[in-house]
Design a protein around this nucleic acid. Sequence first.
DNA 1: CTGTTAGCGCATTCAC
DNA 2: GTGAATGCGCTAACAG
Lengths: 336, 336
Amino acid sequence: MEKQTITIYDVAREAGVSMATVSRVVNGNPNVKPSTRKKVSEVIERLDYRPNAVARGLASKKTTTVGVIIPNITNVFFSALARGIDDIAAMYKYDIILANADESVDKELNVINNLLAKQVDGIVYMGYNVEDEMIKTIKASRTPVVIAGIVSDDPELYTVSIDIRLAIEQMTERLIQSGGKRPAIVTDSDRYYVNEVHRIPGYKSALAKYDIEVDDDLIIQSDFTDDEGPIIVDQLRSAKATGVVVTKDDIAVGILNALTDSGVKVPEEFEVITSSNSVLTKYTRPQLSSLQYPLYDVGAVAMRLLTKIMNHEEIDQRQIILPHKFISRQSTKPQE
Amino acid sequence: MEKQTITIYDVAREAGVSMATVSRVVNGNPNVKPSTRKKVSEVIERLDYRPNAVARGLASKKTTTVGVIIPNITNVFFSALARGIDDIAAMYKYDIILANADESVDKELNVINNLLAKQVDGIVYMGYNVEDEMIKTIKASRTPVVIAGIVSDDPELYTVSIDIRLAIEQMTERLIQSGGKRPAIVTDSDRYYVNEVHRIPGYKSALAKYDIEVDDDLIIQSDFTDDEGPIIVDQLRSAKATGVVVTKDDIAVGILNALTDSGVKVPEEFEVITSSNSVLTKYTRPQLSSLQYPLYDVGAVAMRLLTKIMNHEEIDQRQIILPHKFISRQSTKPQE
DNA sequence: CTGTTAGCGCATTCAC
DNA sequence: GTGAATGCGCTAACAG
């Protein structure tokens, strides 16, 4: 399995120059006479020389590679975010090592250590929780890390996200304003941190505004497997919910379909509002109203922030909150 | 931006051994006395030493990294495939560099060269076409490449796929058998090679079996943007199609929804069958009948094949065809 | 079992 | 402008 065999020395010899000169033209160093630059370039072309990025990385201590940690590849939430990251990374000539943490905290740590071993220049982390040990590892490594999709209160951390607490509060308010006195919330249970610190508080504060008492039966956590929709709907109905805020689009689809399958009219009898505005929302009938989570932007901004840190540019803000909106489709009543 | 500073020398000094010994314990070489192994391990732990994978890669000429080239991150087709790849890669301790080719042949070449420069140990390629220049690059590099999702007639190439021609033929037959004399086919236009070499021939051979003449108006290529569903449906209806084979799930969803939105009853008046059996098929109403493309398996088998090549194991078959099935849901009439 | 010694391919001073 | 020399951190013979 001999890989690339042509080295900088081969080029140097063929071109009748030293390897230092070849290195210079490869790296666009201006201190090369145009004529020799041309000569060397020709040889590079002819020999199909391709600089060994590994050797380069060792010598320069830069790999032009960033690690992206995601909880689960198959999560629709991810693809839009990934595109944002990828676009900006490509723009700045960084490659991406995609590391799937498989929804497990242990693996996350494993994965981040792995990335550090690979000497990535930076990391975009989209995890579940901001675990203490994670933070420790992040801080100990001198590798820049940007956390995407989670708000943290640790001022040292770089984060890009929307104000989730506020968003959930507003979504809940919408349900209340359109007449439902018993709005429910269904969260994906695996994101403990976000649930406890942002979502549930947001939900409760909306209720508080309208003097509605919290009923724990209306707070449902779900791991969601494909056919869980009907189960959740049963819980929702026996708790006499009038509408539901859902934090994950595929769960919302499951609930919506279970609802209509069982003859409940959405939105007339029951409102559903979801959180990611992924493509799924447009594929259902009725189409799902959703928080417009600017996924692409979060990814792009996170990556952009990371490049700034890697380039030692000045950072005016470590915690970036992006604005969010709402898209009213057909699963909620029209707002007046 | 000082990265990891602790080297194998630091560990060696602290443990009072040579760096070779440290290297041995790190790599699990059995030729180390248990007591010194223990001593070294403790120092590693204490210093939080993490072997530099870049240096390792340079010295050993192995990076334990594989490149995965995909046409488009946001394609639902991909996520299942990626999971198959990722699972097996993780099993064999390989990291993945995800390279997005952005649906462009130029970028594909660019991307593959980039991957080769990074000295990946192997590549899984899920491209559109098997371009000549791609093949040349693949063969010139001594890096193993497995092509996933496309059948090729080049016996030197490693490929993992289903028999697409046959699958399309069978899908078309199903539509014919359930009474439709004018089955149409809608393909994503960007996959030229697959369309010309596998899909259209499969479609035509089904027609031939039933002595149905080919009507070019029934062969539609679409780039598909979100709201193109109604347009395609218009074409379909003015061509008097009785049903349609769709090659991409999101296009199928668009068509299905446009159909029902305009009052056409599916499957009674019009049948739809799609090709990837992605999660989308279950999210629509009616649910989409689909070719069961074993995406996960294709990804997993491709990755497994790649590991075999990388390990110089014996390969008994370069072109692997995986079996496919069909899932009858609600967008086609029940088969008798 | 353990230490010594070469490179791996390149970026990078430092001279000239 | 250009070349020679050094070292990045590690693996892999090769001795002992």
